[in-house]
């Protein structure tokens, strides 16, 4: 039973509300900045190579009509979902629509690996119900196991992105640990040349240290799921640093995964923290006013 309950911790609904707003707005950004060639593929379906899911579901070949419709539906549903009004209806539209959007974007022989957590997040968010709508939902402290399950699924997918990367590195070498000592970063930099990387080409040992740190970090990443408080924050910061280094060296940002780290953050505390600060602040001014009166009385005495 403990194992079962691990999948459904009781977490405040406020965190879901924040995640909805951030992730649905992020989807709009993603459609324009990252997976942004879906509509181009509708204009030129000649390079279209449907992926397994597209074949299983008999999804139609991208066309101008269906990719434009998909674009409009996604923008409207994301904007509605982000407000936390009708979040479940909007969410059930966004999840399949964005999955299809990304599938088309990746059906050209090249698949990116940074969208797992985001896509799964979109599928689990609408499973969470809640009494409060709109602005009131961000501060909702009602703890819900349904919310906890959704959060846990996103967390698992974020961590899986790293852990399974280390598995893929072992598998590609025939289940051997040759990757960290290989010239993979040199290879990557030669193919994506830019100043920071080219400078590092002179120091292959630095690249090897980075490869070791990377693969050990990825392999140990599941520990973060069981860490608490400050230690979990350190784990998250390690991987954010990892992405910063990847961005500097390889120009690979993984932002769709990075944004999902927010599932680990106690976002539900934002509203109470803000309210406490405001009431503290007004409390202070009252206090000052009182001190001021006392001072006046003393001066008068």
């Amino acid at each position: 039973m403990r194992l079962v309950n691990w999948f459904t911790p009781a977490i405040a609904l406020g965190r879901i509300a924040w995640l909805r707003t951030v992730l649905y707005l992020f989807v709009i950004l993603d459609m324009h900045a990252f997976v942004r060639d879906t509509r181009d593929k509708g204009e030129h379906p000649d390079l279209y190579q449907p992926l397994l899911l597209e074949r299983l579901l008999h999804l139609p070949t991208p066309s101008v009509a269906n990719t434009t419709a998909l674009y409009i539906v996604l923008i409207v549903a994301c904007l509605i979902g982000a407000t936390n009004y009708f979040p479940r209806i909007a969410g059930w539209i966004v999840a399949p629509a964005f999955t299809w959007w990304v599938l088309i974007g990746m059906s050209d022989g090249k698949v990116d690996h940074d969208h797992l957590a985001l896509v799964i997040a979109l599928w689990v968010l609408p499973t969470v119900g809640g009494a409060r709508r709109g602005r009131a939902s961000y501060g909702d402290q009602t703890r819900s196991e349904a919310a906890g399950w959704a959060i846990r699924c996103i967390q698992i997918c974020v961590i899986a992105t790293y852990f399974l990367s280390s598995v893929a590195k072992l598998r590609s070498a025939g289940w051997a640990l040759t990757w960290p000592g290989s010239a993979v970063l040199t290879w990557a930099i030669v193919r994506r040349p830019h100043p920071v990387g080219e400078w590092l080409l002179h120091y292959p040992w630095v690249l090897h240290v980075m490869q070791w740190v990377g693969i050990i970090g990825e392999f140990c990443s599941p520990v973060i799921l069981w860490l608490k408080g400050r230690w979990q924050l350190f784990g998250a910061l390690f991987f954010l640093g990892f992405h910063a280094a990847n961005t500097a060296i390889l120009l690979i940002h993984f932002l769709p995964t990075v944004v999902c780290w927010l599932a680990f953050a106690p976002l539900e505390r934002i509203v109470p923290w803000f309210q406490a600060r405001r009431s503290d602040h007004s409390g202070e001014t009252e206090h000052e006013a009182e001190e001021g009166r006392e001072a006046q009385q003393q001066a008068g005495a």
Partner: peptide, 9 residues
């Protein structure tokens, strides 16, 4: 698989 940059060069 998460096979980005996973090969041993």
């Amino acid at each position: 698989p998460m096979s980005q940059y996973a090969m041993s060069v």
